[in-house]
Amino acid sequence: MQLIITDAWLARTRAVHLSGTKLVLAAVAASMVMMLLAAAMYHWVFLKGARERWPVVGTLVRFVVQDEFEQRDRFMRENLDAMARRLGDMQAKMLQLEALGERVSGLAGVNPNDIKVNPARGGMLVEGRSLTMEELQATLNDLEQMTGERTDLLTVMESRLFDQRVKKMMLPTQHPLSTGGAGSNFGWRIDPFTGRSALHTGLDFQADTGTPILAAAGGVVVASEHHFAYGNMVEIDHGNDLITRYAHASKLLVKKGDLVKRGQQVAQVGNTGRSTGPHLHFEVLVQGVPQDPQKFLAAARSQPLQAAMAAPAGPRPR
């Protein structure tokens, strides 16, 4: 394309040659300039009309702003309702956990009133109305307090249950032999060596030589030695003045000071000391006084064990 520009005053003529590329660039530049001018004009008119409250512009501004606020409010309300439902579920689970904790506290011997969880102030969140942010925040604070108090109670119950388990593991209720028949019981009998009536201070189990002898409960070995009457003997202290004795062994597998677990092998059945044949002589002593081991071995509840430990004192073995 060729443009001829003529100046009447100067009597001059100038020719301008425009190629296709230049025409496209010129059109694009002109379009951009027009768009910028239109945007600037629209912005200026819109702001001026909004500030000076022109009727048409003011109505348009209020419509746009109201629609934006409604969308934002709807979005926030949907999120608040979703949070309320989730908090309601959490609160319901916390109440179930509280009921479970009260039942378990009875097993642990803990009075739940000592560490009482206060109910949430807002009640259940599944209601027929929408909740405000302040109500949700209050419920969150209540749940946080409830969680802390429930954690304290569960910690106390865990400690109590652990103590009970430890005490149970320290009571001699484990059978000292995995195999073997019962022999002489605890009580008065005719002594096989003297032929006179004498107190048999333990419980005999007939078994072959070498049969493993197991600890009836966990504890500390206080004696592992040869005794003129008991032969090769092991004594285990279980705490609370409770001791078990395993006599007539052929071989001792622990030494004084060893820490043993319930069911651990401590010796092997033998025929040493005052014995008429291979067997295990098993004793339970409370405060040094022999008790009937059968009461401990047959006990499944703490009440019979307490009765066994509170049994009348008998004569000490000789």
Rank of each mutant, 00 (worst) to 15 (best):
residue 309 M to V: 02
residue 103 R to M: 10
residue 106 G to A: 14
residue 219 G to R: 05
residue 126 V to Q: 12
residue 36 L to P: 00
residue 152 D to N: 12
residue 228 F to E: 13
residue 305 L to Y: 03
residue 210 G to L: 09
residue 278 P to G: 09
residue 300 A to Y: 04
residue 12 R to Q: 15
residue 241 D to P: 00
residue 287 Q to W: 01
residue 220 V to C: 01
residue 201 T to M: 02
residue 49 G to E: 03
residue 43 H to C: 09
residue 57 V to A: 10
residue 113 N to P: 00
residue 32 M to T: 14
residue 63 F to A: 14
residue 150 R to L: 15
residue 132 T to C: 03
residue 292 D to G: 04
residue 212 P to Q: 06
residue 46 F to T: 04
residue 255 K to W: 02
residue 186 F to L: 07
residue 310 A to N: 15
residue 194 T to Y: 10
residue 36 L to Q: 10
residue 74 R to E: 11
residue 237 D to P: 02
residue 105 S to L: 05
residue 217 A to P: 00
residue 242 L to Y: 01
residue 299 A to W: 05
residue 257 G to F: 08
residue 237 D to Q: 03
residue 288 G to F: 05
residue 42 Y to N: 10
residue 10 L to C: 06
residue 77 R to S: 14
residue 107 L to S: 10
residue 236 I to T: 05
residue 75 F to I: 03
residue 38 A to R: 09
residue 123 G to R: 07
residue 192 P to M: 07
residue 157 M to K: 00
residue 19 S to D: 15
residue 180 G to F: 04
residue 130 S to E: 08
residue 272 T to G: 09
residue 170 M to S: 14
residue 293 P to K: 06
residue 30 A to K: 07
residue 132 T to H: 02
residue 198 A to V: 05
residue 242 L to V: 14
residue 132 T to Q: 03
residue 267 A to W: 01
residue 226 H to L: 11
residue 157 M to Y: 04
residue 107 L to H: 11
residue 306 Q to I: 08
residue 255 K to A: 13
residue 143 L to K: 01
residue 272 T to L: 06
residue 286 V to E: 05
residue 255 K to Y: 02
residue 124 M to N: 14
residue 218 G to K: 07
residue 188 W to N: 10
residue 214 L to A: 03
residue 165 R to I: 06
residue 157 M to T: 03
residue 88 G to D: 12
residue 153 L to E: 06
residue 105 S to E: 04
residue 245 R to Q: 09
residue 154 L to S: 08
residue 113 N to V: 07
residue 91 Q to P: 00
residue 311 A to C: 07
residue 13 T to I: 02
residue 317 P to V: 08
residue 124 M to R: 11
residue 269 V to Y: 00
residue 34 M to E: 12
residue 91 Q to Y: 15
residue 26 A to N: 09
residue 42 Y to C: 08
residue 170 M to H: 14
residue 250 S to Q: 12
residue 239 G to N: 07
residue 146 M to L: 06
residue 264 Q to F: 05
residue 267 A to E: 02
residue 159 S to E: 13
residue 159 S to I: 05
residue 122 G to P: 00
residue 134 E to M: 07
residue 314 G to K: 14
residue 316 R to L: 14
